[in-house]
Design a protein around this nucleic acid. Sequence first.
DNA 1: TTGTATGCGTTATCAG
DNA 2: CTGATAACGCATACAA
Lengths: 339, 339
Amino acid sequence: MPQKLTLKKIAQDLKVSISTVSKALRDSHEISVETRDKIKDYAKKYNYKPNNIALSLKNQKTKKIGVIIPEIVHHFFATVISGIEKVANDKGYQVIICLSGESFDKEVVNMDMLANGSIDGFIMSLSKETLERQDYHHLREVLNQGMPIVMFDRAVEGIPCDKIIIDDVAAAQSATEFLLRKGKSKLAIISTVDYVNVGRLRTQGFKEALLKRGIEVSDKDVLKIEDTENSTTIIENFLKDTDYDGIIAVNELFAVTASKALQKLGKSIPDDASIIAFTDGMLSKYASPTLTTIGQKGEDMGGLAAAKLIERLEAPQTIEESYETVIVKTSLVERESTP
Amino acid sequence: MPQKLTLKKIAQDLKVSISTVSKALRDSHEISVETRDKIKDYAKKYNYKPNNIALSLKNQKTKKIGVIIPEIVHHFFATVISGIEKVANDKGYQVIICLSGESFDKEVVNMDMLANGSIDGFIMSLSKETLERQDYHHLREVLNQGMPIVMFDRAVEGIPCDKIIIDDVAAAQSATEFLLRKGKSKLAIISTVDYVNVGRLRTQGFKEALLKRGIEVSDKDVLKIEDTENSTTIIENFLKDTDYDGIIAVNELFAVTASKALQKLGKSIPDDASIIAFTDGMLSKYASPTLTTIGQKGEDMGGLAAAKLIERLEAPQTIEESYETVIVKTSLVERESTP
DNA sequence: TTGTATGCGTTATCAG
DNA sequence: CTGATAACGCATACAA
């Protein structure tokens, strides 16, 4: 196993100084063509590559971006990563991923680890526990050190950073209006508990759309699920009690569960009841019937987040403390679960 | 934005030398209790954390592991990452992820980038294109530098490294036998092209199981799909031509597509035709009917791969050139698509 | 008990 | 045109 080639070793082998080698390899004009070629040939022959760690230490930048998300097995997050990775790689950055597992402590620990020189900036979506506690000291600490953060999807107010989100309220509104236009009138939403902001905002949009039409909204038509654990039973019971003809779900899982529950109750979809799910993933595409969804454009969001972060990292001297919130347009993907 | 605290700055502020600070913070006995406490208090107060890059350069190890996989939006790979990440984090390692997007070139580029000091070792699953070309020079180069690799799932022979795989042949065999035992006799397998080794091996297991029962196997009963692009039409045509009563698919996507195609043809599942899918993911769990699967234990595989890699990284002086291939047991998860 | 010097691999500045 | 030196942040062998 031949040791990794360094400038030092090349210098020794060729009996020149380290700095000559360094300059030659960077095509400096102050090196004679002969020595330069000699060195470059040697380097190419033995496949010299500069050591990234040394460069990072020297340049005070790692060309790496840290991504902290709750889970990677959720399709939406996987698409976001995919988008981040594509843009980042194009611009010469690498992606370090840490999962919080929806835990506040793990989010903090991971952030601390990465913040100590491993990366140049963060892209993140907050854990449920963090949203519940509303404790953002770890974000503030990192920002105070001058390290930028871009939040996506599960973002919060009051943190000086860029954000990439969708307009959850508007998306839920238009989905609701879509169902109403299709002649559905007894609607329900299957959402999360309120501290998960996307759940809260989507519920808000749902309610607003109904009120605008002069339709009374009862809290009984809003199902708030805390855990995915036994969501099946909860959803089944919820749908058994009332005769809904239109359901909006804040994620695919709840949607397909609702679809199955309704069919079990003898209802036909979309005729007896229609369904719209947030997130346009695999599940909706392959469910029976296939589900109409609100596409969240995970890959786009990831790409935008990465572009934004890198732009900030490479900005000459960002004294300007103006942060941007990009709202990504959602799109309604119509499938069999709506008429 | 207060600059990041370094040993140097602490030393200046406290008017001691850098090495004194360093030693004090590492609880060296050669430092007096007073100065030690003074320094530790100061460090804690201003939240000193050693710089990872500097440590990496000094120690010649980064405590990071590089993961290169084809795609992250495939549920199987997402579960593997999840497993890797858990084990790695527990042992103080971080995970850098690069996607090859099934491209040979991108795999090579990513490997080169990571190999230059960014990480201590690799965990990877080869891209389709790499398998097709059978060009593994990039792996050999990395191994020659003394950097260990652990391959999982899409592993190949002849590379001196550890491997974490499932026994694809045996798993396909037992799934086939399972269908035969349930009284199915006209079986087919929906697989990938042969250069994707998992597809080839699963097809082999399928054939062997049938031959063992003295059942003739025709190549017409093996559908080899190259791309997921228009797999739906291909599968529909395939199933229309022959009256199969049992289908094995090498992934969930093909399985659920087959299920829908069969139902469209007026067949009832599992009575008229049964289905078994490789990979126990979301799709199978929420399909209608739910699909029986061969669980690949992605999270376990990832965990094992990480454990194996870290074990090798931390082994005192591994001159022993003995590599291990761990075969992870699969499990049949019975659901509605089989009787 | 404390401090100085050296090295990890690289680049940049300055002298020769 | 070439080379010596310092610096990035840290750890450690060796002096004082």
